[in-house]
Design a protein around this nucleic acid. Structure first.
Lengths: 214, 214
DNA sequence: CCATTCATGTAATCGGTTACATGATTCT
DNA sequence: AGAATCATGTAACCGATTACATGAATGG
């Protein structure tokens, strides 16, 4: 009987908030929690069975007549204890594995214009994601008017991950813009292109203050 | 005959800079390039064979008497062309998969003191990595005294990835410190703990206004 | 003496994605 | 009529890690 996998803890974490079916969990591992951990239903159903075999979750069948019956899973006391212990247990920092950085490492071979377009496109995507985070943030902080929820509530934990997403994406988008600026500046070598935003500048990494790629 | 894998392009990227053995590539995929892409030798040797089968690299055996013989691989013209095209080709933004964020999402269940220690530890690790980046940076920018190398040189590309590493780690460390501050403040509820560094701030999530990567 | 470096491979295992499989209800 | 949602599973495949395998030279 081996250790619980990270996915197992992800499922326990969702079930600690509210009970639900495998289908429910699959949905949550797409939309809000999917911003930092994902899984398909093909991985979730067997994992739930394994958690149940270890007594960390239980289920009962809910019969429905207009829809298929479903198994509603709930976390057990043992599951809650295992989850609580896992949160503060040791964790290796995983290596970064980022294909866009690998592209950047080989960008000296590429057409600067095309490369600039690639990095601008990725900046745009991160900015789009930031907009989605902002919507979630509004929902989380709305009633309390900008006050961070108390530690010890699920709302605080959700806000904390959201905050990381926001700053992570901002940082990444800024770097993408810096890359695009460097590449475009090099592409328009000393020609008439006055390229206001693309000056290499000191390493301060100022974003082009435009309205954002769109 | 399928597409070249990302690892294949990683190897091509290294061989585009200098020829080397599988062993050499394995070393590079630990230390400098390993900061954004890794592979073990068990993955590298078969991949080199596949690249050779497609004519993207070639090799010749170098016999040594004090050491084992080695196969020195070099990129071909076809390989260089494939690499160049790949750099600017379309790229899906991969989902984030971050176990520390998953822990944060469940931190409401945990002991705040222990959790704060976990996040401080991770902040410390990122800061240690920043120090390593700084050393590399000094090597890269040393002769040119702080001037960014020209786009189109391998040095620019290396600097670009390093710059991302720096700002990424800074951002992550700052968030870890914010988490730790929140958790410690909650742990020392209304007691004398004036928690200097832990002010929640507006929800805007402003990045630390540091001097920027340099 | 033992660990590390150099050097190249194969095999087993694991986590995750894609595809296969089935089937009712509701929405466009 | 076709797509999407609800609902639960299995099988095949793929990328990556760990372990197995061998062996000489150097350094502490």
């Amino acid at each position: 009987m081996r250790d619980v996998t990270t996915l197992g803890y992800a499922l326990l974490g969702l079930l600690a908030r509210r009970a639900g079916s495998g289908y429910d969990l699959a949905r949550e591992l797409r939309r809000p929690v999917g911003y930092f951990w994902q899984a398909r239903h093909s991985q979730i159903y067997p994992e739930l069975a394994r958690l149940e075999a270890r007594g960390l979750v239980g289920h009962h069948v809910v019969e429905q007549d207009d829809r298929p019956d479903k198994k509603v899973y709930a976390i057990t006391e043992a599951g809650r204890a295992a989850l609580r212990a896992w949160v503060t247990s040791e964790l290796d920092t995983p290596p970064v594995r980022d294909e866009l950085l690998l592209r950047a490492y080989n960008v000296w071979l590429a057409d600067p214009r095309a490369a600039a377009a690639l990095f601008r496109e990725h900046a745009r995507r991160h900015e789009a994601q930031i907009a989605r985070y902002r919507e979630l943030e509004a929902q989380l902080l709305d009633p309390t008017a900008g006050i961070v929820p108390p530690v010890g509530t699920p709302e605080f934990a959700a806000y904390a991950t959201l905050r990381q997403g926001l700053s992570r994406r901002r940082e990444y988008a800024a770097w993408c813009h810096w890359m695009a600026g460097q590449l475009d500046a090099a592409a328009g070598t000393q020609s008439g292109a006055a390229d206001g935003a693309a000056s290499p500048e000191s390493a301060g990494g100022a974003d082009p203050p435009d309205g954002g790629p769109r």
